[in-house]
Amino acid sequence: MIEILIRKAEKKDLLSIQRLLSTYFLDMEELEPEDFVLAEREGNMIGCAALVREMSGEKKFLELHSIAIHPNFRGKGIGTRLMDYLINTLRNPDKPGNPVCELYVRTTAPGFFEKFGFVKLQDAEKLLLWADCKSCEHFGKCSQHAMKYSRV
């Protein structure tokens, strides 16, 4: 197994995060370095994922964003390690197994998230959560699946 450190990102990690995200044509629009968790090997960032607080009407929730693994390290469990770290930080200490807040993701890789207990949402639910989906010209043919963490 590869020796990996998972840690919260800091401002000094901005360039490394941007470089990795650009590999997959992802950007950091409205995201800060501190929103990210990093996977490092021998001091080099090899993966990242962001967790962002969102609000839709009165509903507050968390959304996973911009999960990216360096191409040389894909398929080696780095994404799983990042997801385990993020999900474990959401545990409610008073109710073991229950997250402290609802967690969602929009993704083109639903199979990856299903392994962690995410389930696909219907388009109507997607529209309730994300205002940007309502006005998107690609909504009817969107390749992103909206998913909710449902493991209790």
Rank of each mutant, 00 (worst) to 15 (best):
M1E: 05
M1I: 05
I2W: 03
I2T: 05
E3L: 04
L5K: 11
L5P: 00
I6N: 03
R7E: 07
K8E: 15
A9G: 15
E10L: 13
K12H: 14
D13N: 14
D13R: 14
L14C: 10
L15D: 12
L15F: 15
L15H: 10
S16M: 03
S16N: 13
I17Q: 12
I17V: 08
R19H: 12
T23S: 05
T23H: 15
Y24I: 04
L26K: 08
L26W: 04
D27T: 14
E29L: 10
E30V: 03
E32T: 12
D35R: 05
D35A: 10
F36A: 09
F36N: 02
L38I: 01
L38Q: 12
L38R: 00
L38V: 07
A39I: 07
A39T: 05
E42W: 03
G43Y: 06
G43C: 06
N44D: 05
N44F: 15
M45W: 04
M45E: 12
I46M: 07
G47W: 06
C48R: 04
C48E: 02
C48M: 03
A50K: 01
L51A: 03
V52E: 02
V52M: 05
R53N: 04
R53I: 00
E54S: 01
E54F: 00
M55S: 11
S56P: 08
S56C: 08
S56R: 11
G57L: 08
G57K: 06
F61W: 13
L62T: 03
E63T: 12
L64S: 04
H65I: 02
S66Y: 04
A68C: 09
I69F: 02
P71A: 03
P71C: 14
P71M: 01
K76A: 11
G77I: 07
G77E: 04
I78A: 13
G79D: 10
G79V: 04
T80H: 13
D84A: 04
D84F: 08
Y85F: 15
I87G: 09
T89S: 10
T89C: 06
L90I: 05
L90S: 10
R91M: 08
N92E: 15
D94T: 09
D94N: 14
K95M: 10
K95F: 14
N98P: 02
N98Y: 13
P99E: 11
E102N: 12
L103Q: 02
L103W: 01
V105C: 06
V105P: 03
R106M: 13
R106K: 08
T107A: 09
T108W: 02
T108R: 15
A109L: 13
G111P: 01
G111K: 14
G111N: 15
F112P: 03
K115S: 03
K115P: 02
F116Q: 03
G117F: 02
F118L: 07
V119G: 00
K120E: 09
K120G: 11
L121S: 07
L121V: 07
Q122C: 11
A124R: 14
A124W: 14
E125L: 09
L127E: 14
L127K: 09
L128P: 00
W130N: 04
D132S: 07
C133E: 15
S135N: 14
C136Y: 10
E137R: 05
G140R: 14
G140S: 09
G140A: 06
K141V: 10
S143L: 05
Q144T: 06
A146Y: 00
M147Q: 02
K148T: 01
